[in-house]
């Protein structure tokens, strides 16, 4: 558990630093590039699902994107 705690502390510090960097405000009319589909974190939902499912069934590590995904007999 100590290991988990230290990892979470580091990740939390990182999240905070990202938030602080982000204090430079981007105005709504400046978001044209960010609105592009290719700039989205989920630009192709089925592709993400296929690839997550493949790696979930072929590797020891998984998770990090969403919750309540459910399991399969592939792992």
């Amino acid at each position: 558990m100590k290991r988990f705690a230290s990892v979470f502390t580091c990740a939390g510090a990182l999240a905070l630093s990202v938030a602080l960097v982000g204090c430079s405000t981007v105005q709504p009319w400046q978001k044209g590039n960010l609105a592009k589909s290719e700039m989205s974190f989920d630009h192709d939902p089925l592709q993400t699902r296929f690839e997550e499912h493949t790696y979930f069934s072929k590797e020891g590590a998984s998770g990090g994107m969403s919750v309540g995904g459910g399991g399969c007999g592939c792992n």
């Binding site: 400046q30 994107m65 919750v67």
Partner: peptide, 18 residues
């Protein structure tokens, strides 16, 4: 947390536990 960093940058940090 997802953050718009500039008009050309966006970032996200997720912590996950199962």
């Amino acid at each position: 947390i997802s953050q718009v960093l500039s008009k050309n940058d966006t970032a996200q940090v997720n912590l996950y536990y199962a």
